[in-house]
Write a protein that binds this DNA or RNA. Structure first.
Length: 284
DNA sequence: GACCAGGCCGAGC
DNA sequence: GCTCGGCATGGT
């Protein structure tokens, strides 16, 4: 095991790791356990740094800085948000929340498995998928399975991981990627609209899942996933007295939140899901 | 036991 | 273009 110390400021590691963008981090007595690529990682946050114990022997930690986006100036991001009461409340409640920069295939596959699932369940399915099909990294830990590996799986084999009707979607995506019909390596150099359109050619990938991948894996700052929580947040916080269709809300989101709309979205999502739940019943 | 979950697809208007 | 039912499974 090697130890890396990464200086950070304004970084809430725990909130970031549980905020529903990545699904493999679990808290143990000695820190947050996870897997990044084929490396086992244990993270702890200190005053002005994040300490990582990792199974990799290589020096440097640029892969980890990249994953954590530790170099990013959060103040600059936050100051680009609109200065309105909902956004101020979300930032006050979740300050230090970050966006990770994840592996595209893992992110895409995970979010294909996410539709109409609670985050706890997505974590269970992903965990099961890794145990069944991922390369073994230690006695207890497996890597996220490659597209090539999953392309060899059978639909019943995938359904055994409790993913239900999502199994054919995942299988088809794995084949598409492994056969080169969708190139995830070059996707990130396309304009946002083109990259999104390519992702949406996959079965089971619509606008929302595509935007999650564009934001969490490729870092497109304007990608703005609208799920049920963000929909609730927009309706309750911005349009409490007027009915707005999903399309109207998306149009609003595309113009209102500025150049880092995706980041703002993650604050609204996390705020609505974890801090603002007392409003759950009468208005929906 | 009802309702819902980081949705999407296909059919029918 | 829009709405709606169906889809698997498990948490709350």
């Amino acid at each position: 095991m090697t130890t890396l110390v990464i200086p950070v400021r304004d970084y809430d590691l725990a909130e970031t790791l549980i905020s529903g963008q990545a699904f493999r981090w679990t808290l143990h007595e000695d820190g947050w356990h996870g897997v990044i690529g084929s490396r086992i990682v244990i993270l702890n946050s200190g005053n002005s740094s994040i300490t990582a114990k990792t199974s990799s022997g290589d020096s440097g930690g640029s892969w980890l800085t990249e994953y954590l986006q530790a170099h990013l100036d959060l103040d600059e991001i936050l100051s680009s948000f609109p200065d309105d009461p909902p956004m101020r409340a979300a930032v006050a409640a979740c300050r230090g929340l970050r966006l990770l920069r994840q592996d595209p295939w893992e992110c895409l596959a995970s979010f294909i498995l996410s539709s109409t699932k609670q985050i706890v369940q997505i974590r269970q399915i992903v965990s099961s998928l890794c145990d069944c099909f991922g390369e073994r990294l230690s006695d207890a830990v497996c890597a996220f399975p490659s597209a090539e590996r999953l392309a060899q799986a059978s639909e019943p084999g995938l359904r055994a991981c409790k993913m239900g009707f999502r199994a054919p979607y995942l299988l088809s995506a794995a084949r598409c990627v492994s056969e080169g019909r969708l190139n995830l390596h070059t996707l990130g150099s396309l304009p946002l609209d083109e990259a999104r359109a390519k992702l949406m050619t996959l079965k089971g990938v619509g606008r929302k899942i595509a935007d999650c991948v564009l934001l969490f894996a490729y870092g497109y700052p304007a990608a703005f996933p609208v799920d049920v929580w963000v929909m609730k947040a927009l309706r309750e916080l911005y349009f409490p007295h007027r009915q707005r269709s999903a399309k109207q809300l998306r149009n609003f989101s595309e113009t209102h939140f500025g150049p880092n709309a995706g980041y703002a979205q993650q604050y609204l999502f996390h705020y609505r899901r974890t801090r603002f739940s007392s409003f759950d019943s009468p208005m929906k």
